[in-house]
Structures are given as C-alpha cells and as structure tokens.
C-alpha cells in the first residue's frame, strides 16, 4: 500500500512541508531539509557577523550557527525566549539552526496548490519566496533555504582569498 501511495504522490508532484510562524506571518520549507527541532539555548555571539546571525550553539559537539529568521526575512530582530524553537536544517553541505517563534504545521501538498508569488517590488522577498499556499484562511509563504543562504555568501571570505 505504501508503495502505491508513494507512486501516487510522486505522480502528482506531492511534497511535505514544515510550516513555522514568525510574528503574524507563516512560512514553510521542504521537510526533507529539516533534521530536527529543538528548543532555544543561549548562543555565543560571533564577531563581525551579519545582524541576522545570532551566534553559535553546541549541537552534540558540532558548532551550529543560529540564524534569526525574522531578521533574515527582513523583519524586526527576534528577542528569543524559552518558547522559541530552532529548526535544524541542512542547507547544501552545511547545517544551520533557524530561530523561529513556533512550528505550526506539517503540510502535505501537491505542486498545483502552490500559487506563484505576485509581482512585488521587494528584492528580498523575490530572492527567497518560491510560492504561496492558501491553507484554509491562512497564507503560507514557501521559502527556498538554498536561496536564503547561498553557498557564495557563506564563503565570501574564502573567495576573496
């Protein structure tokens, strides 16, 4: 049964997304890039870091940078509380922690339910938004993490060398 289900979902271009909330907006990312979800712990600030990098935390021995998604998406910087969560996601070869207010949903959608992003002037939104989902009365913006953290921006320094 599971096989036929998989075939069916593949044929319809179905995918699973994880939705999270920042302020009064909802966003979602592909569930395949999410490794785990954990609570907020105090991060060690990094010198010379962009404003949206909260710092780094210890993820079972690995150094995990924490990205303030609110600041990264152009909204006001987050003031993390114990209720905030970190979505540990794999972006290309790197693992990053995304600080969000809450994880709100896990969605199974088909590609045809994704509406295109309307023409907007802001470059930032154009850069990361890949579509808009209408679930009940909610609007959820589909984000492409790779576009948000291009390898190039991460490796800016080493490229200069």
């Amino acid at each position: 049964m599971s096989v036929s289900y998989a075939v069916k979902s593949l044929s319809q271009g179905s995918r699973e997304l994880i939705a999270f909330r920042i302020g009064d907006q909802e966003f979602c990312v592909n569930i395949m890039s999410v490794r785990e979800i954990r609570g907020w712990t105090l991060a060690t600030p990094m010198p010379h870091a962009p404003s949206y990098v909260m710092g780094v935390v210890n993820l079972r021995g690995a150094v995990l940078p924490i990205i303030d998604m609110s600041a990264r998406l152009g909204m006001k910087p987050a003031e993390p509380t114990a209720r905030h969560v970190i979505i540990v996601a794999q972006v290309k070869s790197k693992t990053v922690g995304l600080l969000v207010e809450a994880v709100s949903d896990i969605l199974t959608i088909t590609d045809d339910t994704i509406q295109p992003v309307p023409e907007i002037s802001s470059d930032l939104e154009k850069q990361y938004a890949r579509g808009i989902l209408a679930i009940d009365t909610r609007m959820i913006c589909l984000i492409e993490l790779e576009a948000l953290f291009p390898e190039k921006a991460h490796d800016k320094e080493s490229e200069a060398a």
Binding site: V53, V56, D155
Partner: peptide
C-alpha cells in the same frame, strides 16, 4: 571544533570549542 564546517571563516577567530 571547526567553525567553517557549518558557518564560515570568521576574521580574528581561529576555531571554536565547547
């Protein structure tokens, strides 16, 4: 611990530790 593995080289910082 490597900083570069998940982040990037930070000027003035050689690496990290726990």
């Amino acid at each position: 611990k490597s900083l570069e593995a998940n982040y990037t080289h930070v000027p003035g910082i050689a690496a990290a530790t726990i």
